[in-house]
């Protein structure tokens, strides 16, 4: 039986399934199964950066103007950012699919 459900051939794996290229976890899409998405109200945001610090993935990144922008490629919809935002500037909105 040979359905191609694996991401690569077993022959291509490094010894002991080691990862030889550091940092490649950034390629892993973790944002394809969320049910809620965080939406930021920049009127309320005070640029404190808690969302950026506390996000367990890599959703938030600082912009030149001091605000933080979101990359939904990584967002699992856990809601930590919304829970921790001291100004209530982040709202969790249901994903429409």
């Amino acid at each position: 039986m040979a359905k191609e459900t694996g991401i690569c051939s077993w022959k291509e794996l490094a010894l002991g399934t080691a990862i030889l290229t550091p940092g490649n976890a950034s390629e892993l899409k973790t944002g394809d199964w969320r049910s809620m998405r965080p939406v930021v109200d920049y009127e309320k945001c005070v640029k404190c950066g808690r969302c950026y610090i506390l996000c367990p993935d890599m959703v938030y990144s600082p912009r030149d103007d001091g605000y933080y922008e979101l990359n939904y490629y990584y967002c699992k919809g856990c809601g930590i950012c919304a829970h921790e935002c001291p100004k209530g500037a982040i709202e969790m909105v249901e994903e429409e699919r």
Partner: peptide, 15 residues
């Protein structure tokens, strides 16, 4: 290098 990473279902079988 990373020795001992997570093996998601799409790689564990091959590992």
């Amino acid at each position: 290098v990373t020795i001992g990473p997570v093996g998601v279902p799409e790689v564990y079988t091959e590992a």
